[in-house]
């Protein structure tokens, strides 16, 4: 096996929670509780779990969008939490994030062209090159070049997700965190975006952390799967092994809870 691109070691993130109306208590929520795993170059690691399991927090810590309580994340051997701001800025060009609803992450007053152009600028691309690159990245997500003059609100959820992916790709990252990128989409649109991610990941040899609560989508996209529950890593392994023979009871429970789109089997399970 090759050297990991990302190593997560004993990662911990606590949030102080003020419980109740009076704000008393001051409990600590262990959102991420001593989590360790590796992500290898060119692989898609699925990070699954239910709401509150800590999967999104883990994704944000790996990008250093959050500071950890303790623990270590290395990217290409460099510790990202010890990195000076300037080095971090350089590193960020190699890491991108795709959100569940990219609409919330777009400036509504910027055209699609300006949104992607801003990402290109990070790589020092301007002028005519910027225009042709914008078209190239739009084409990559199967959008016509003329959408560059339009605004995010003019697009459907699936089209917005394509624009969000184009923006992430424009930075030419090695690594992408995709946080529930298809959860808000209709079934038919979901299949299109899953196919797009699958194609792009293979074509560009992207390394990806795919965060999802939908194990069926994870099965299609991921090489390996990590399962989280209550901030802890429950199980990590090859996708095939996890789906065929999960070792942990909790993973089995998650798999069994998925309603099967086949009346004969769905009813037997019930």
């Amino acid at each position: 096996m090759s050297t990991p691109l990302i190593q997560v070691t004993n990662l911990v993130k606590h949030f102080s929670a003020k419980s109740g109306l009076a704000g008393g208590g001051g409990n600590v929520v262990k959102a991420v509780d001593d989590v360790s795993f590796d992500i290898f170059p060119g692989e898609v690691l699925g990070l699954v779990g239910e709401s509150g399991s800590g999967k999104s927090t883990t994704g944000r810590l790996i990008l250093r969008l959050l500071e950890p309580t303790s623990g270590r994340v290395t990217y290409g051997g460099q510790s990202i939490f010890d990195m000076p701001k300037n080095d971090l800025r350089e590193l960020r060009k190699q890491m991108q994030i795709v959100f569940q609803d990219p609409y919330g992450a777009f400036n509504p007053r910027m055209t699609v062209g300006a949104i992607i152009g801003e990402a290109l600028e990070l790589r020092g691309i301007s002028g005519a090159q910027r225009r042709s690159d914008t078209s190239r990245f739009l084409e990559m997500v199967q959008m016509p070049a003329n959408v560059a003059n339009r605004y995010p609100h003019e697009f459907s959820g699936g089209q917005r997700q394509r624009i969000g992916i184009a923006r992430a790709l424009a930075v030419e990252p090695q690594f992408i965190v995709a946080d529930e990128p298809v959860s808000a989409l209709d079934v038919s649109t979901q299949a299109e975006i899953v196919n797009l991610l699958l194609d792009l990941q293979q074509r560009l040899s992207l390394t990806m952390l795919f965060i999802s609560h939908d194990l069926s989508v994870v099965k299609v996209l991921c090489d390996r799967v990590a399962v989280m529950q209550h901030g802890k890593l429950v199980e990590v392994g090859d996708s095939q092994q996890i789906f065929a023979a999960p070792r942990m009871e909790y993973t089995r429970e998650l798999l069994d809870a998925i309603p099967i789109p086949d009346p004969a089997r769905a009813r037997r399970a019930a």
């Binding site: 079934v187 038919s188 899953v194 196919n195 939908d214 069926s216 099965k219 996708s239 789906f243 798999l255």
Partner: peptide, 21 residues
């Protein structure tokens, strides 16, 4: 038919494109 075929399930083949509508 298209809708039923496009749904990812636990039987979906890994690393294989989904059918679309």
């Amino acid at each position: 038919r298209d809708l039923l075929k496009s749904i990812p399930t636990l039987d979906s083949a890994p690393k294989t494109r989904l059918a679309t509508v």
